[in-house]
Design a protein around this nucleic acid. Structure first.
Lengths: 336, 336
DNA sequence: TCTCTCCCTGAAAGCGCTCTCACGTGCAGC
DNA sequence: GCTGCACGTGAGAGCGCTTTCAGGGAGAGA
């Protein structure tokens, strides 16, 4: 058990069990066509030697690696700040992969040459499939890999046309519910702080706001942020300059909503009495803001899991729908 | 899946370039002993065919995989809630590995059979080395792998004796600075909310508190939490029952400090006038609490990077120190 | 001009595993 | 007793790459 390089091979097990390599291989891989006495003899030999198959040798012949890559656009500094979005995705993906006994390889595209690295690595058949966390703008890589025959699933509806299957949440439905809630509670000047307009999450949430408002006689009041707390604070200030009398704001992310709340408080507005605030995400932290944030919950963990499930299906050669959209849900707390 | 199997092999490149496989291999791996004209001919062929070496075949012969595993004890539900600790570790590790052109394989030990999976996977020589994020209690796995000759580095000083190299932060120094700060500002009844006492971070931070207090004539007032916000809120309540007149509290994590602040406010205490609060972590979010949290900053990203660097050294066969301790730093804001 | 080196290059042997194919055995059917 | 057929098992051919080893060619020294 001492030296790493002396690991037992199939050969050794075969010798000890007095059978051929082929038979050991069958037992190890659970083939049904091995007689019981031999099977248990092999099992014993495997046990005794502590045999563990060499992954490289196996995948050299099977052409599978049993691992999949999750690509994160780290450029979005969102990834590992205090925004739990990506961590939750990772968590969800990891849960599903564990269950399927696959490995998770994490890749970031931020660093210099990162993009090319991802391309090389994935096309080197180092992994059986690739998952992309939602990206900014139009990313050609998923489509490219897809065209090469590599199983790919992306998170978030891709901008531009794309044949790559994706999983997304119902941004528009969630936002409409939020805005409707504001309308129903009698708010008349409802503003929004939108997310970046080169991301689907930003675009769709603004579209939802506009769509719901269109049915009323209220005018839209829009400022744009980048999903960070700071941008939320700044945007809120702009909105109040545009319309000092606004009495509600739908903010396209919880973090921006926190920023907006800070600004509102600094400027002496009471929440929700003077201004109602609704966020989007339902991060843990939003339960602890003052006042607790009314927000649209999106099932991020589930998004990650669904992503993984779809990819596993593609890898298994099953048909998958071109898109899966998970429901969102308005969570009413004290801020609106 | 169409043309995936038609990937060019060394053989194909060799044929196109009119040389042998051996020569192509040398060029691809940057061996210096290939004449220039041949080298460029091979390069051209590689380019033309879009050749990318097959990782499995390579590692079958080299016995390297160029990827390393990061094991996270997901059981600590900390991992992917709104606690940015693990995400930052991942981020740091990933940065260093990217630079070294290694891959990051993420593993969680939470799920059923997770522990055994980690063991099998890592001993299957699927990875060149293993990193462990700090764990609860005494984890035998790192030592076990280490004994098998597998390169291993752990984050956080291991409980119990262990020959495995580790990277940690200076908990005690940071806490002492925090408590000293409270003493210096004239606080006389200084309590603490400690972390779980089966984790080094919990143990050492409490030890630091005690050590610094020992030099003064103040008595220690202790409650224990589990690093979550909720436990911080609860512990704060206990402390105030123990000593309604306490005028300062050192909290062993920022999240618990947030919980404590909530409780203090609910009970009508002003911060810092009535009770000074100091946290530990310096998460982004702590800049935005009300009031902004005075806390001990620990360099988590750097911890991740150092972890990866040490492991790469071990893998390269270099000597590494048995431990590296990174400095912590008191960040004074408004809460104390 | 001949020999000795020094470089390069190619042939070939695996790395550890899977999987096809052929073959042996035992048993039912005639 | 002989043929036919399952059913298991083993031999062996690779998967695509690296690396040792030997050999060929060119240049240098005599």
């Amino acid at each position: 058990m001492s030296q790493a390089h002396e690991r037992p091979t199939l050969e050794a097990v075969a010798r000890l069990a007095g059978v051929s390599r082929a038979t050991v291989s069958r037992v190890v891989n659970g083939s049904p066509k091995v007689a019981e006495p031999i099977r248990s003899a092999v099992r014993r030999a495997v046990e005794e030697l502590g045999y563990i198959p060499n992954a490289a040798a196996r995948s050299l012949v099977t052409q599978r690696t049993d691992s999949i890559a999750l690509v994160l656009p780290e450029s979005a500094s969102r990834v590992f700040s205090d925004d739990p979005f990506f961590p939750s995705i990772i968590h969800g993906v990891s849960q599903e992969l564990d269950a399927a006994d696959k490995q998770l390889v994490l890749m970031m595209t931020n660093t210099v040459g990162g993009y090319e690295r991802v391309e090389r690595y994935t096309t080197a058949r180092h992994v059986d499939g690739v998952l992309f966390a939602s990206t900014h703008g139009v990313d050609p890589l998923p489509g490219q890999l897809h065209r090469l025959g590599m199983p790919v699933v992306v998170s978030g509806r891709p901008l531009g046309r794309s044949a790559v299957p994706y999983v997304d949440v119902d941004h528009i439905g969630g936002v409409r519910a939020a805005v409707r809630h504001l309308l129903d509670s009698g708010r008349s000047r409802i503003a929004t702080i939108a997310g970046p307009q080169d991301m689907v999450a930003g675009i769709d949430r603004l579209a939802g706001y506009r769509a719901e408002l269109r049915g009323s006689d209220r005018r839209s009041i829009v400022a744009v942020g980048d999903f960070t707390r700071e941008s939320g604070a700044t945007a809120m200030r702009q909105l109040l300059e545009d319309d000092p009398l606004l009495d509600a704001v739908f903010v396209a992310s919880d973090l921006m909503a926190h920023g907006a709340i800070t600004t509102l408080r600094e400027l002496g507005r009471r929440i929700p009495e003077d201004v109602a605030v609704v966020g989007f995400d339902d991060f843990d932290i939003s339960r602890y803001t003052d006042p607790p944030l009314t927000t649209v919950r999106q099932p991020i963990l589930e998004l990650g899991r669904e992503l993984a499930r779809q990819l596993l299906r593609v890898i298994a050669g099953e048909e998958v729908p071109p898109s899966v959209v998970l429901p969102t849900e308005l969570v009413v707390r004290a801020s609106a």
